[in-house]
Design a protein around this nucleic acid. Sequence first.
DNA 1: TCAACAGTTTAGAATGGTTTTAATGTAATT
DNA 2: AATTACATTAAAACCATTCTAAACTGTTGA
Lengths: 139, 139
Amino acid sequence: MTTTVEFISKLRNSGLRPTKQRIKICEVLFNKEKTFHFTINDLVKIIENEANEKISLATVYNTVHAFEKKGYLKEIPIDSNQSYFDTNIADHHHFYDIAEKKLIDLKQTDVGPINIQKTIPGKKIKSVEVLVKLETDNQ
Amino acid sequence: MTTTVEFISKLRNSGLRPTKQRIKICEVLFNKEKTFHFTINDLVKIIENEANEKISLATVYNTVHAFEKKGYLKEIPIDSNQSYFDTNIADHHHFYDIAEKKLIDLKQTDVGPINIQKTIPGKKIKSVEVLVKLETDNQ
DNA sequence: TCAACAGTTTAGAATGGTTTTAATGTAATT
DNA sequence: AATTACATTAAAACCATTCTAAACTGTTGA
Ligand SMILES: [Mn+2]
Ligand SMILES: [Mn+2]
Ligand SMILES: [Zn+2]
Ligand SMILES: [Zn+2]
């Protein structure tokens, strides 16, 4: 449980003005028991259901990208034509249920350590992400 | 070096009629020394440069998806709004150079075995893909 | 051999997620 | 309060991809 005042501080400390819209999006994203995965469309629907206010699509995109840049959200790479975001910013991996189009978290311990044995001169590793695609098991 | 006759057989054996367009795309994709990664736009440009013929964009999409379905190509999941394909259909992983927007193959031995310790009832693993994002190493 | 059929190609339109535009609104600063 | 910079918005633009429907081509079998 995080208070509105804390979200305002968080935004100010990030150099983002604490607008009504950004605070509402903070509440929707970061005031939950558990972390979760969402698309922009999911987020718009959650906002519509939880609040009376409407936030324009452009602002939702702007805010999600601002939060991603600040490290408050992660984008999950999936072979898909729409972006998936994650409020779980810890290093972790994913199942992707192809039929349901849903992401499921994998803990580091579910996958084990991954050591990349190759290097590219002038480049360093920014992230290592494992995506495990799931299909229906017909026996 | 694969002959046109062999591509025709390959197509016929897959239940795909060996049209002029599909044979040309086979030549562009599968008659190379090394495997490579490409977007649809890349492929269209390669075709334009290597041939006098033009192949419509719709046909390029159709053919790439047909080849993907038959297992002659793989789609690589990247955080991007465009699809990346791979003529290397062996199990392997990738570096993704964010600045260059280029994929680089990682051999299985560059990554080591990955054992997923979690299961989901009624689901089975279809693929396990590691994506290692690279950024510029300043220092 | 060739008509008939099914599969394929094509230009262009449509789709849909995302970004841009530019006018209006609001938070911060003085 | 006035100024300034930043933010929101509806609508338009963008752009990768898919769809449409008409023309074309490979295949089959009489
Ligand atoms: Mn993003
Ligand atoms: Mn595909
Ligand atoms: Zn996650
Ligand atoms: Zn590859």
